[in-house]
Amino acid sequence: MSGPLLPDPAHERLTRLWQAHRPAGPWLPWDLKAVYQDRWVRFHSLPESKRYAQDEAEYAVLLDRYNTVLDELFGGGECYVVTTDWADPAEPTQWSHHRRALHPEGTVWTTLDETDDPDPECHTRWYFYADRRRWQRGGIDALLRAAADDSLPGVFVTDPDLTRIHHPYDGGADVILPTPGERDRMRDRHSAWLSAHPSGY
């Protein structure tokens, strides 16, 4: 791949919304819980806060938990499925190939230069890939499994207005709701999946 990487014009509206959230809005999905603390809840993906599934029965449990929440967030509507990559697309890593295989529908949405570290050698350019689709239960199970295994971090799903966001990862998922009240109601519906820690982590 050569030449400049141009964002997909179909994602322009999503980009405008994302930029409208700055500087408050997060650009990396693991920042969500800090930025939207008042609308955030974490659900564990396995009983007793177990971090990784060890057999198909446990994968069935975590996929059911992920999909149950995703159904509540996006059922009957459309959503964006987003994956991230830190590698230059001109020099793809094995992770890049893995991401593309799991998310072939994703087209480049935007990039982010992470330059907080004073050492330029530690600066990272993140690439975000997105596709807009009608939500269907089970439709992203391969991505959810990869996120749960930590073999493809940086996956998230959002509604087109960026008010409902689901970020799965090894051990659970961060969920952002439009209001604290909606967050509380979802948290109460799935109280058995919550962390016992007072902070919710």
Rank of each mutant, 00 (worst) to 15 (best):
V157Q: 04
L177R: 04
Q37K: 06
H166Y: 14
L46H: 09
H103V: 14
D141K: 04
L102R: 03
T179L: 10
Q136M: 02
L70G: 02
P92L: 01
L6M: 11
E105A: 12
Q54V: 02
S96Q: 11
W95M: 00
W18G: 07
R100V: 01
P118S: 08
R42A: 10
R134A: 15
L5N: 01
D8G: 05
D88W: 13
P9L: 11
L112G: 00
A146G: 01
E91L: 13
A130P: 01
V155D: 06
P26Q: 01
E182R: 15
D55K: 11
L144A: 03
A60Y: 06
A34W: 14
D55T: 05
R183M: 10
H97W: 05
T84C: 01
V82F: 12
V81L: 12
A87C: 02
Y52K: 10
T110A: 08
D170F: 01
S2V: 08
R99N: 11
T110V: 14
G181E: 15
Q94S: 07
M1Q: 14
L102H: 09
A57K: 10
T107F: 03
R145A: 02
T107E: 12
I176A: 02
T163I: 10
F156K: 01
H97A: 15
R185M: 06
Q37H: 11
V157F: 10
L162W: 13
T110L: 01
E12P: 04
D88I: 10
R133H: 05
V69H: 04
D150R: 15
I176F: 05
G172Q: 08
P198F: 14
L6Q: 12
L73G: 00
A142K: 06
D188K: 11
V81S: 08
A148C: 06
Y169T: 02
P9F: 10
W109R: 10
R137D: 06
A142E: 03
S49L: 13
D119I: 02
R39N: 03
P23F: 14
D88C: 08
S195G: 01
H98N: 07
H21N: 04
V175F: 07
W27Q: 07
W18C: 12
L5T: 00
D149H: 12
G76S: 03
T93P: 09
V82A: 10
H97M: 08
L5D: 03
T15R: 11
T115G: 06
W95N: 06
F43V: 00
G200Y: 09
L73C: 05
R183T: 10
P47T: 04
A147K: 05
R51T: 07
T84M: 12
Y59D: 07
D85C: 15
P180C: 12
A90P: 05
D150E: 12
G154M: 03
F156P: 09
P104T: 02
